[in-house]
Computed example of a mutant assay.
Amino acid sequence: MLEPAGVLPQAARRLDASPELWPDEVRISVERLNLDAASFRQLAEAHGGDGEAVKRSVLGILAERGKMQNPVTGSGGMLVGVVDEVGPDSPLGVQKGDRVATLVSLTLTPLRITDELRKWDGRSEQVPAAGHAILFARSIVAKLPDDLAPELSLAVMDVCGAPALTARVVAQYVDKGIKPVVSVIGGAGKSGSLSLAAARRAGAARTIGIVPVQAEKDRLESAGLAEVVALADARDPVALAAAVEQAGGPADITVVCVDVPGCEHGAVLSTAAGGTVIFFSMATSFSAAALGAEGLAADVTMLVGNGYVPGHADYATELLRSEQGVRELFEGRLKAEGQD
């Protein structure tokens, strides 16, 4: 860390992104970044969809901070690249030449871009890039599977914590003899579609996908990942609760996977007493969630999805391979972004 002194990398305002390694570090030659969905949405909206302005903003953040950490959302993303050098004391189990995805946030990864992002138009979450990144001894990294395109692997690994934690929570209910109703807000997105598949596989009695527009409803229904797909604006608590109720709720488990702020109260209101809300969105205000639950006298357990569950990358990749609906949604999203 360059500043302030004494804090961990995620909390640092600026990191040292020089290429020299400590003995337990690894240097990655960067090929592609994946910006966090909440961060990319904020940047795109702030600049009115002007891709060049978004690009300049990202370059400015990288130059100022030595890492990718959106100062508004606080979030970053992840990257793929090739291992360039491995320190002799690194415990990460990678070798020079391995193509890998980092499973830790760009908000704590020293990162220097050297190509001015020339191949990126500023209009998609995935960012072709050249440069280097540094991984610490306690970083998390996964080798990319040979049978998947790097763009597809990156899209899956960007959100692989969501399905793994969803499966764990559903399994805990099942172990107690309860087959839960699971509602996924943002069910047609990357983390949402994987979470729906994970919930069903883990033994949910009913899966409900919540989406904001008809086009996403059509896509999710075609994918066949939810028993019911409902239209609702997750920022309207009463409308969301009504939609979940009509779809077979209230939910025992609500998984929040949207990339817009203001969905906390709706998630709480649409969850049954004694239920669980899992927040995966980096747009979440955790003070709003806590105070909102208090104000609603809602007896719910609220979990923060921290992006890491042991085995999460392998689990999410296997869901992509085995669930045709998940793969169709991912490939459709990449095609729409021009990443095919």
Score class of each variant (00 low, 15 high):
Ala223Asn: 10
Thr254Lys: 03
Cys263Trp: 03
Tyr315Ser: 00
Arg201Pro: 04
Pro310Val: 14
Val309Tyr: 10
His265Ser: 04
Thr254Gly: 04
Ser285Phe: 03
Thr276Asp: 02
Val260Ser: 04
Asp252Glu: 14
His265Phe: 03
Thr254Met: 06
Thr301Gln: 13
Ala316Lys: 08
Thr284Ser: 09
Gln246Val: 02
His312Val: 07
Ser270Cys: 13
Ser222Trp: 03
Ala273Leu: 05
Val268Leu: 15
Leu296Thr: 13
Ala230Asn: 06
Ile278Gln: 09
Pro212Phe: 10
Pro237Trp: 14
Pro250His: 11
Val211Ser: 02
Val326Ser: 03
Ala242Trp: 06
Ala232Ser: 04
Ala290Phe: 00
Gly295Gln: 15
Val228Thr: 02
Ser285Asp: 11
Gly266Ser: 04
Glu323Asp: 07
Ile210Arg: 03
Asp233Gln: 06
Glu227Ile: 06
Thr301Leu: 13
Ala226Cys: 15
Gly224Glu: 13
Val211Ile: 05
Asp299Asn: 13
Ala272Met: 09
Ala267Asp: 13
Ala267Tyr: 12
Val309Pro: 05
Val244Ala: 15
Asp218Gly: 11
Val255Pro: 01
Glu264Gln: 12
Ala267Cys: 15
Gly209Cys: 00
Ala230Met: 08
Thr254Tyr: 07
Phe279Lys: 03
Phe280Gly: 00
Ile278Phe: 11
Glu328Asp: 14
Ser270Trp: 10
Thr301Pro: 03
Met282Asp: 04
Gly311Lys: 00
Gly275Arg: 00
Glu245Phe: 04
Leu329Asn: 01
Arg201Ala: 13
Gly203Lys: 00
Val244Ser: 15
Ala239Gly: 12
Ala215His: 14
Ala283Gln: 15
Ala223Met: 10
Pro212Gly: 07
Ala273Asn: 07
Ser281His: 09
Thr301Ser: 12
His312Ala: 12
Gly292His: 12
Arg235Ala: 00
Val260Pro: 04
Thr207Ser: 08
Gly295Glu: 15
Gly249Met: 07
Gly305His: 05
Ala215Pro: 08
Leu231Asn: 13
Pro237Phe: 14
Ala297Met: 15
Ala289Gly: 00
